[in-house]
Simulated scan of single mutants.
Amino acid sequence: MRKELYVFRDRKPMKAEIRNYREADFAELIRIQRESFPPPFPEELLWNEEQLYNHVKRFPEGALCAMADGRIVGSVTGLLIGSEQSGTAHSWQEVTDAGYIRNHNPSGDTLYIADICVSPEYRKTGLGKWLMQSMYEVVVHLRLRRLLGGGRMPGYADAAAAFAETKEAGFLSAEQYLESVMKGERSDPVISFLLRCGRTPVGVVPDYLEDEESMNYAALMEWKNPFWNGGNQ
């Protein structure tokens, strides 16, 4: 894949490009990961070169990056999984093979998002949404049933702490937090972004990822291919 487009930065059009990433991009991709996921996000969950090598060799169609100002400023990575892997009872480590995607199933009908990130400097330009849109295009191109992935809920820990201070013996569950975001009572940096991208929640997953801000929870969210015809060519 390779496409050129314009996004807006400070109300000014900016030329950008989305393409498949390759081995020569690994150092830049690792830099973007560090910029996008600072502590307390666990450093060991950031991409390493072996993982990135697997991405470009096992499923290059699902390894995309965004470029602006002559450099990589974002990326998104996925793998194909079968229906037996896509239930709500899974962790990020299990479904992505800890990011190494050696379990990529070329016959799978679901594109699972392992990661999406945009450098903080280029957020609010629309590049994150364009990266997700590009993955929807991969789903349509490969005639897959849907796109799926777990969305972090980085606002959950603070919301739960604030809730506990105002309610006697009360606790805000992850399901309640997600519902409050869906009702517009709260905004979550990741979940609200995914909703704007067209993703729909299908459940809450406990112990999905070591993530203090999300209290290890994630919202499993999908995008259904509107052109899918049951697997018939």
Rank of each mutant, 00 (worst) to 15 (best):
C65L: 10
T125E: 02
H104M: 14
S119H: 12
V140T: 13
S75R: 08
G99K: 04
I113L: 09
Y100F: 13
L144W: 01
L79G: 02
P120Q: 04
G128S: 07
A68P: 02
T88G: 09
I113T: 10
R102W: 08
R58K: 15
R123N: 05
I116E: 01
G108W: 05
S107P: 03
A89E: 14
A68Y: 06
D109P: 02
N105W: 01
V95K: 00
A157H: 04
T125Q: 00
S107M: 09
A68D: 04
Y100W: 09
W92P: 04
D109M: 13
K124Y: 08
G99L: 12
L148F: 05
A66E: 07
V139E: 01
G70E: 06
I72V: 12
L144I: 12
G78Q: 00
L142M: 13
Y156F: 15
D158F: 05
P120M: 09
A160E: 08
A98C: 11
A98Y: 10
Y156W: 03
I72C: 07
C65D: 02
L148Q: 06
G108Y: 02
Q85W: 11
V118S: 00
L79A: 10
V139T: 12
R123E: 12
E61C: 11
I72D: 00
A159F: 04
P154A: 01
Y156P: 04
S107Y: 05
V138Y: 03
T96P: 05
V118L: 01
E61Q: 13
V118Q: 03
R152E: 08
L147W: 01
Y136T: 15
S134R: 09
T77I: 14
L142C: 10
M67V: 14
V76Y: 01
P106V: 15
K57I: 07
L64G: 05
A68G: 07
G99N: 07
D115S: 14
I101N: 01
G151Q: 01
G149H: 00
R123C: 11
D69I: 09
V138M: 06
M135T: 14
A114C: 15
Y100S: 13
V95M: 04
V138H: 00
P60M: 12
D69M: 14
G74C: 06
I113A: 02
R145F: 07
I116K: 00
G149Y: 08
E94M: 11
G149I: 13
L147A: 12
R145V: 13
Y112A: 08
V118D: 04
Q93T: 03
A63H: 05
E121Q: 12
E94C: 05
H141V: 10
D158N: 13
P120F: 08
P120I: 10
K57R: 14
G108H: 01
